[in-house]
Computed example of a mutant assay.
Amino acid sequence: MWSFQHPSGRRELSQLHVPAGRVVRLHLTSEDVIHSFYVPAFRLKHDVVPGWLRTAWFRATAPGTYALACAEYCGTEHATMRADVVVMEPHAYDHWLAQGDDPGPPLAAAGRALFHKLDCGACHETHLRRRAPPLEGLYGRPVTLRDGSSVLADDDYLRRSILRPDADIVADYQGGVMPTYAGLVDDDELLLLVAYIRSLADAEGVSP
């Protein structure tokens, strides 16, 4: 099935409510096999791959209910992996988002709590002797690496840096300092950490 979680923390199964006229940014991952997020009415098709965080964008212009399917054969239940994208007037969407059961903390807030639980700030937030690159304003910007190349600080880069920190060593920093968190955080927790780091960029005025 398709499972969704809004930045506010509210969750949905097999339905995705979105506001009309606003850009919607999706951060996609799979827990099992390759799927493909496919909304024919929006001309949107994007692969969803285990172990990767991918970003897709769309802006729905007209309220209504639109079919969502998986366009990649993913197993015996492939034909039933369907959902609806429910496009609402912005004021109705805002009202809907505020209703329902307590969703828990927003994603960025939950990610911040996890960030401090893992003591990531000991290196990334220590101003007197910072041992790791600063995260404020990082998301959506190019990062210069020690070998002179550069990489965009997107979802996949952040996930890779958490699980394989020596894969892309940032210029002016040493490798072998940050431990790997592979096996210590699951996919849901990775999404929370990325949401928190992304919020630091938003707070800096970055619009990736």
Rank of each mutant, 00 (worst) to 15 (best):
G176W: 02
L53S: 14
D32K: 00
H91M: 07
L16R: 08
R112P: 01
L68C: 04
R54M: 14
M1D: 03
R11F: 05
A67E: 11
G140H: 01
R131Y: 04
G137R: 10
G104S: 06
F42H: 13
R11Q: 13
L68Y: 05
R164V: 04
T144A: 00
A108N: 00
G100T: 13
L128I: 03
L152H: 10
V33C: 13
D166I: 06
H46D: 12
V18M: 07
L44H: 14
Y73M: 11
D94W: 04
D154Y: 00
E77A: 14
A109G: 09
D156Y: 01
L68V: 02
T29H: 15
G183M: 06
D202V: 00
P40S: 11
R164L: 01
H6S: 07
P7W: 04
D94R: 06
H78M: 10
G176L: 03
H95C: 09
V48N: 11
Y66F: 09
I162N: 12
F58N: 03
S207I: 01
G64M: 01
L135N: 05
L163H: 07
Q15R: 15
A203C: 05
H124Q: 04
Y181N: 01
A20M: 03
L138Y: 00
V194Q: 14
Y196N: 13
A171T: 07
M178V: 09
D84E: 11
C74A: 06
R130G: 03
G137V: 11
Y93A: 11
A110D: 03
V206C: 01
Q174T: 02
Q99H: 06
S36M: 12
A110C: 02
V151F: 07
G104Y: 02
L28G: 15
T180E: 15
L152F: 00
Q174L: 09
G21M: 03
A132P: 08
P63S: 02
S36W: 05
L114Y: 12
R198F: 08
Y66G: 12
A201C: 11
R54C: 11
A20K: 10
M81I: 07
S3Y: 08
A62D: 13
A109T: 10
E125M: 05
L145C: 06
A109Q: 08
A67F: 07
L114A: 03
H27D: 14
S36P: 05
E72H: 15
D172S: 01
R141Y: 05
A182Q: 08
L68E: 03
E125H: 02
Y196D: 14
L190N: 14
H78V: 05
